[in-house]
Design a protein around this nucleic acid. Structure first.
Length: 222
DNA sequence: CGTTCGATTTTCT
DNA sequence: GAAAATCGAACGT
């Protein structure tokens, strides 16, 4: 809840061009944007503070590596702006935003978010239960944030760039004003040489980041 | 503080 | 049948 650091530049949907970019370019641009989740209990607004890029058929860490198109990965091949949700380790969901063009599978994994207001945090704690006491326990991790926002496969394939969607993105902050760190990805050792590439991005010193890099390399948006 | 390990089920080989 | 873009409890130091 560091609103003073970055005054809103005006509410509105994210510029559609962003969803057409390769995931590696889109991932840092999604930082600071607002993820808005609507359920029967109300609307939760939170700020994206960590993302990770999975881009193209040459990325060994990607589910769509080598062009693998299956029932699960099919949504990755759709047009940018599509929501990709999958189940991992039998019990957690992960949320991705598909980017790039149709037939070119790119996705940005949303790894951490922070609630905007105390009211947002309160409802997230209800969804999250006991473990969501401290910031990183509430929504600092892809599985955690999906629980805190009640995100499951029912959202898979929906669009994140429409105002009427139960899950949407809004452009609020100017990404250039953010202090962004670039770091290697997490838990993808099978990706070989790709595992060490800095395809993860997060906001420096943000309390919702659970895994920090030793060398917090600054990433400057051009 | 740190590391290790079990949970649980979809997906693909 | 094995692995998986994870988490949290249970240990050990």
């Amino acid at each position: 809840m560091n609103r003073k650091d970055n005054e809103p530049s005006g509410y509105g949907l994210v510029p559609p061009e962003l969803y057409r970019l390769p995931a590696l370019q889109a991932a840092p641009l999604l930082l600071g944007q607002h993820l808005v989740r609507r359920t029967e209990d109300g609307e939760i607004r939170c700020r994206i503070v960590e993302t990770e890029s999975y881009g193209g058929i040459e990325d060994k860490g990607s589910h769509a590596f080598g062009g693998r198109r299956t029932a699960r990965t099919d949504v990755m091949f759709r047009e940018g702006g599509t929501i990709y949700v999958y189940l991992i380790y039998g019990m957690y969901h992960c949320l991705n935003v598909v980017t790039a063009g149709e037939g070119d599978p790119h996705a940005v994994l949303i790894r951490a978010v922070e609630p905007l207001t105390d009211a947002d945090a309160a409802l997230m704690r209800v969804y999250r239960g006991k473990a969501g006491r401290n910031p990183s326990g509430l929504s600092g991790g892809p599985g955690k944030l999906c629980r805190a926002l009640r995100i499951d496969k029912s959202l898979n394939g929906l669009r994140i760039d429409s105002g009427g969607s139960p899950l949407r993105l809004e452009q609020v902050e100017h990404p250039k004003a953010l202090d962004i760190v670039q770091a290697p990805g997490i838990n993808i050792p099978y990706a070989g040489e790709y595992a060490e590439l800095p395809w993860r991005f997060y906001l420096r010193n943000n309390p919702y980041i659970s895994v920090k890099d030793k060398l917090e390399t600054p990433f400057i948006l051009s």
